[in-house]
Simulated assay, not measured.
Amino acid sequence: MLRNKILQQNGAQSFTYFSTKILQLKPNYFGSIKIFGVKELKKATDNYAQDMILGRGAQGTVYKGILQDKRVVAIKNHRILGQSRLEQLITEIVILEKINHKNVVKLLGCCFKTEGALLVYEFVSNGTLHHLLHSGTRVTEILSWDNRLRIAQESADALAYMHRYETMSIIHRDVKSANILMDENYTAKISDFGSSILIPVNHDQFTTHVEGTLGYMDPEYIYTRQVTDKADVYAFGVVLTELLTGKKPFDRQRDEDDIRLSTYFVKETNENRLRESVDPQVLEEATDEQLSAACDLVHRCLDPLRGNRPSMQEVTMELETIRKMG
């Protein structure tokens, strides 16, 4: 069933292209992605035991699993699949099968069943950047200024890699701090490619339905429905603002005009209140030169006109420069 669907469907290009150019199909595998059996994953999660649950979301539950070879993995159990969600899962499989980057979460396998699907990922042990920043239990050393810049640079480098991948540009479309996982060393790992699309390099944009998360979405993309890699740049600008300020991307407790962190931060800095806006730890540890450069980079990422935004490759290089200023 899945093999046929992979050969038949994809948003920007046909799966026939991917079957011949990307996926080397063989028994029990799609390229490097293993096809697990239902019983194998049931055993790995101790029959989906409550104490193996890592988290729950709108699309399903994530379990910790221990495979037969003793590898610890994360297993996402997706609920009953409609056509649209099935296509998203297939897109994620196609993308993650080919990506090999240390700052992108690895998809190890999948299992499609009548009532849903299971995706098996590498186990990333320290939760999300969103939780680290906003849970109220932050660890000062982990969120040092240099670590924040490092996490930003790692995430930016992964996105830059995706945007210039071989003959395709992979647009994530849901870049946010909740989709940046932290491993045992607090190294960043971009995750959740269900909303991603692939655009041939000779296409500047692709018209599609709007996907993303409130507070992170590129206003030009919302208005035109034309997605480019600059939609990811805008969303990354919001993540960088979170790292600078420690504030949530969307907060109804702020004044009505300031609910979105992006508009709040731009307004505050334009009115020369940068030092009042940033996280106290950042203010204490960053040099004035670093703060000014980081603020300028955020402004350019959040420019309402996507043509004025930098590429993710440029963002990566600028973050490296800012780190060296310290």
Rank of each mutant, 00 (worst) to 15 (best):
Asp232His: 09
Ile190Gly: 00
Tyr221Ile: 04
Lys34Gly: 00
Ile53His: 04
Val282Phe: 02
Met168Ser: 07
Glu318Ser: 05
Leu297Gly: 05
Arg164Gln: 15
Asp157Val: 01
Tyr29Met: 11
Thr321Met: 14
Ile170Ala: 09
Leu7Gly: 11
Lys230Tyr: 07
Gln205Lys: 09
Ala160Val: 10
His209Thr: 14
Phe30Val: 15
Tyr29His: 15
Glu122Cys: 08
Ser84Ala: 08
Asn179Lys: 04
Ala286Gln: 04
Leu96Gly: 09
Leu261Val: 01
Asp255Ser: 14
Lys64His: 07
Arg79Phe: 04
Val38Asp: 10
Gly11Met: 06
Thr241Gly: 02
Phe112Cys: 02
Lys64Tyr: 00
Ser135Asn: 15
Leu23Asp: 06
Val120Met: 11
Arg85Lys: 11
Ile22Asn: 12
Arg3Leu: 15
Thr140Ala: 15
Leu67Arg: 06
Tyr63Lys: 01
Thr137Asp: 13
His209Tyr: 11
Val38Ala: 07
Asp232Gly: 05
Ile199Leu: 12
Thr321Tyr: 14
Glu184Thr: 10
Leu244Asn: 07
Gly82Gln: 08
Gln281Thr: 07
Tyr223Leu: 14
Arg85Trp: 01
Ser177Tyr: 13
Ala231Asn: 08
Leu244Met: 15
His209Ile: 13
Asn179Cys: 10
Asp46Leu: 06
Phe15Gly: 15
Ala58Glu: 09
Lys43Gly: 00
Ala58His: 11
Val62Asn: 04
Glu97Ala: 15
Asp258Met: 14
Val124Gln: 02
Thr128His: 04
Phe236Tyr: 03
Gly37Asn: 12
Arg79Leu: 11
Ile90Val: 11
Ser311Gly: 11
Ile199His: 00
Gly307Asn: 13
Asp146Arg: 14
Thr269Lys: 03
Ser311Asn: 05
Arg71Cys: 09
Met162Glu: 05
